[in-house]
């Protein structure tokens, strides 16, 4: 097997075909008044899979992310996480269930330091209870130390150690993307939804982010990634889903999908 074939085989494996789905989007539609933003959209992310979601601006990708994470209610359809419907769960409860997202324009707790941003997202700390703070200080202290150790591991992993004490507002765009990735990792997710992780990021940091995503995927975390940088995305994902005008127009292996005439017409500007 030559190097290119070997690379393609590894990338294809990230589609995790055959694995049971961790996230299922079933026949989601969304109407804003008379405007149909999403029409009967279905897709799935297999456990351990790395799936890309592409489409021209206005195709409905970010709306779909907001519906999946519970910020917008769908007009029709169901979202399942590890086989169970999550339609009635709040965004917070979905995050606690293991489904977290990042944003196209990175969001951070601006005036908290990098470390504090990560610490704030650790779930189920004894120190979240005022009662425990005063009456179970030993348990709180032990968990704080465990949390701090986990944060140190994460800042090392994401190479943010040098800036770990800076307020997040002072980070560059690429560093904020890494911080977002770190923050979602602290929630112990099973599936991460990344919204344009390479947007506005310099090529060196893009390579860094790709390495980190692949490493996390190898640890078993599934990803659904919206991205316009097709070169970077095809290095990353094993499956692609393409949306246009609120519907799914193609899905499958990246090379096959990108060669699809409808995709070329809708997204790449090529002849249909």
């Amino acid at each position: 097997m030559n190097a290119i074939t070997h690379h393609n085989a590894i990338v294809a494996d990230r589609g995790a075909s055959g694995a049971p789905p961790v996230l299922e989007v079933e026949r989601i539609s969304k109407h804003f008044g008379g405007f149909c933003a999403l029409n009967d959209v279905s897709l799935s992310v297999p456990a351990g899979g790395l799936v890309g979601l592409i489409g021209p601006n206005g195709a409905g990708k970010s709306t779909l992310f907001s519906i999946i994470t519970g910020f917008i209610a769908p007009s029709e359809g169901t979202i399942r996480l590890r086989g169970s419907p999550v339609d009635t769960l709040s965004p917070f409860a979905r995050a606690r269930a293991g489904m977290v997202r990042t944003f196209q324009v990175p969001r951070e707790f601006s005036h908290l330091s990098v470390r504090e941003n990560l610490m704030a997202a650790i779930p189920d700390q004894a120190g979240e209870h005022l009662f425990d703070l005063f009456f179970k200080p030993q348990q709180v202290r032990i968990q704080e130390e465990q949390g701090a150790a986990l944060v140190e591991e994460t800042v090392d992993f994401l190479k943010l150690k040098r800036i770990a004490d800076l307020p997040a507002v002072k980070l560059s765009g690429g560093q904020k993307k890494l911080l977002e990735l770190g923050r979602v990792l602290m929630t112990r997710p099973s599936v991460i939804l990344l919204d344009e992780p390479f947007s506005g990021v310099n090529p060196v940091l893009i390579a860094e982010i790709i390495d980190r995503i692949i490493e996390l995927n190898e640890r078993g975390i599934s990803f659904l990634v919206i991205e316009h940088d097709l070169e970077a995305l095809t290095r990353l994902v094993g499956r692609l889903t393409v949306m246009d005008y609120g519907t799914v127009i193609a899905e499958g292996a990246p090379q096959a999908v990108l060669a699809d005439a409808r995709v070329r017409a809708a997204y790449l500007g090529g002849p249909a």
Binding site: P91, F92, R96, R101, R107, F109, S110, H111, V184, T187
Partner: peptide
């Protein structure tokens, strides 16, 4: 700082 982000951060 950011209540929406806090909600999606669990």
């Amino acid at each position: 700082d950011n209540s929406d982000l806090a909600r999606v951060s669990g």
